[in-house]
Structure formats: C-alpha cells, structure tokens
Amino acid sequence: MSAISIFSSALRQTARPTRLLTSQLSRPTWTPSFSRLAPLQARLLSDSTKQAINQAVATSPVVLFMKGTPEAPQCGYSRASIQILGLQGVDPAKFTAFNVLEDEELRQGIKEYTNWPTIPQLYLEKEFVGGADIVMSMHQDGSLAQLLEEKKVLVPAEEESK
C-alpha cells in the first residue's frame, strides 16, 4: 500500500469530526454575543471567550485550530499541519479541528489564550504543542510520533493493517 493512499484515507477520516465541531461552535456554550462586541472590547480576551476556548481545547485529546477545514484548508501552514496529523495516524475519534475563519472572536482569542501569534495551533490534552513549524520539526525528528504514541491518540496498529 502506498504512502499516498494511507495518507488520504487518514485525511478523510480526520475530516469527519470537523463537521461535528462546526455544530459545536454554534452550540449555546459558544456565546453568540461575540460578534456584537465592539472592536476594542473584542481585542481583550474576555472571560466568556476564555471559557469557550477552555471548552474547545478539551473537546478531544488532539485539537487543532486551523484556517479552513481538514478537507479544505485555507492556508498552507494549516494544510501542512493537518497532513502531518494524518500521516502520523491520529485517531479521528480523538481529534477535533476548529476553523478560526468561521469566528473572528475565536481567531483573535486563541492567539491571546496561548500568547501565540499565529495559526495553526496544535493542542494535546489541553496543552499547547506548537504552531506549524514546531509540528513540522517534531514530525521530522520523530518527537511528535513519540508524543502521540505516549498520549495514545493514534489509530491502533491492528486496525490500521486491515
């Protein structure tokens, strides 16, 4: 089996929970009043935004905040990050992606939440791992595989060989 087909099936799988998550974003817990905030207020990380992001990072063991969706990433760095998670064999059931382009409050809020200025951002068990460059270099030096293995978020080996 070629690497490409493993990869694309993994990508299709990772795509599944995103739809779930779009609906989560519109759940009442994600306060709809966000968009009505004045621009100045919106710059400060309000308690409600912080709370919503706390919930978002706890949605799954592996959480990626990205531009676009896993099926249609809208930035090369988000694309690279989602591809790496697919290649690593992250279990789609343990993965959630949030599209920051759908919510300006989330887009700004997530940068302040971790004090990290760029998107994508990867979280593992609520802990910030890094942005695209860090994920890429961890993928290359093997430390990402090790970390994902430790946290048991990969598709079980016997399932994958079916």
């Binding site: 990290w116 200025p117 760029t118 910030f128 890094g130 942005g131 460059d133 270099s137």
Partner: peptide, 24 residues
C-alpha cells in the same frame, strides 16, 4: 523550540500581528 519561538514572538509582538506568516 517552543520557548525559543516564544522569546522571538514576544520581541516581535506587533510586527507578527501585522503579517500573515512567520517562520522562525
């Protein structure tokens, strides 16, 4: 790596906010 990037990012906070992509 994460701590190094944070150091760089905090030094360039305003600049990075104004650009799209930053790869240190």
């Amino acid at each position: 790596t994460l701590a190094r990037h944070r150091l760089v990012n905090s030094a360039l906070k305003e600049e990075i906010a104004a650009i799209h992509a930053w790869t240190p």
